[in-house]
Write a protein that binds this DNA or RNA. Structure first.
Lengths: 222, 222
DNA sequence: CGTCTCTTTGACAGCATTCAACGTGTGTGG
DNA sequence: CCACACACGTTGAATGCTGTCAAAGAGACG
């Protein structure tokens, strides 16, 4: 159900995405300065930082992730154009954000939005809506991580990806995909290769994937 | 950080929990009738149901979970006394809830709360706070499921559990623990047995666990 | 005391990881 | 323009962790 809604979306990992239109529409005062540019792999913020700002993606793709002390990484979500990320209630960030590709972001002041919300019913509603969508997304991700095989994980990922003319253009590396799915880079690669041998997909190059048999992919995830 | 905060809490799986004090304090009108009683393993609501009500635990323990079509189950969270669960923004439930033990719940009308929120700044704030805590909890759970070994998962679970005099009293079965951690019941059992051999814990009976060496458990999860 | 369910333990299999080598594509400098 | 370096990705072999299947043990309840 959420998956179907997600598939019609236009962002890399739609599950976690949500727009907050209320940030447009005459509320430009909430913006914190001009558009900010980040280069590939540049850190946008880190876990533990003070959470003064949050962001909306104008172009490019962003990942949010958590790390264990030994370096293991779990990517929580990818965010594409229009998506909002980095909104927190506590003072401190609970995860890190990095640019997957070069990207442009608009920043908003958390305190400004929080202050405006009580007098702005639409903003307030969308804030809650955003948060609840994030919950649903994270819970879906937990089901994926806890109870699906490697092949199922990769299939879910592919079906979440935005399509342009039947082609998936991946902004992220195999390592990113692996860390999103809780797998190793080798397993992701092997699984994709097997899917290509099974004629479910075609991989003209590492950053492009063609869905040759979407129905079979959907059958894979039951 | 969230783990430390969680450890001081008093609910089975504190990560997902949040109280919403605003539901007391002169807002009794939001309640939907008297306390409801549910027997062990009784369904409280199911994924896809209409989401008219949400609940607060008075006594007992509740689990929320998702199912795959072949029956695989992922428990998203456990809720104990004081915790709120089942609040949704959409019309349909995105997960199921069941009674882990016999329990008493207070129900609230979602529409009532949504209607009251715009005119009630405290309620509105706590609603958002609740949602954001749920997000953080689910993201922590994703890290656990995606990037930790069986031993680490069990250690995290034990350290999340509420302690009474150094004793954990488990309301849930091994199967529940397994489905929360993304493991099998056998792996959970084996891991606990190994921890007992290693003198990290003691297991006088299946529903009680003594933490003999909490520091070692904490070292386990780095 | 027997039955039933839940839990533990054992043996084995299999899937994903690990370690290692080999391709592939891109960018740079000769 | 080509050659090389380097990062990224793919493939192979072997290990090992966790799952699967099976059986035995432990409590709870009638």
């Amino acid at each position: 159900m959420t998956a179907q809604a997600a598939m019609t979306r236009n962002a890399p990992a739609p599950k976690a995405a949500f727009w907050m239109n209320a940030l447009d529409e005459g509320r430009e005062a909430l913006k914190a300065g001009a558009v900010q540019r980040f280069g590939q792999d540049q850190e946008i913020f880190a876990e533990g930082n003070e959470a003064e700002l949050f962001f909306r993606v104008v172009s490019g793709v962003v990942r949010t992730c958590k790390f264990l002390s030994d370096g293991r990484r779990q990517i929580e979500a990818f965010y594409g154009p229009g998506d909002v990320f980095g909104f927190e209630l506590g003072e401190l960030r609970s995860l890190s954000a990095e640019a997957v590709s070069d990207c442009n972001l608009v920043a908003y002041r958390r305190r400004g939005v929080e202050a405006a919300a009580p007098r702005d019913e639409i903003l307030s509603r969308q804030l809650l809506s955003f948060a609840m969508h994030s919950v649903a997304s994270a819970q879906g991700h937990a089901l994926l991580l806890g109870r699906r095989s490697a092949a199922e994980k990769v299939a879910v990922f592919l079906l979440e990806c935005p399509l342009r003319n039947g082609i998936i253009s991946l902004a992220m590396s195999r390592q990113d995909i692996a860390d999103y799915l809780g797998l190793t880079i080798e397993t992701v690669s092997r699984t994709l290769s097997q899917m290509e041998r099974d004629r479910l997909i075609e991989i003209p190059n590492a950053r492009q994937i063609l869905l040759k048999n979407r129905d079979a992919l959907e059958d894979l995830i039951a």
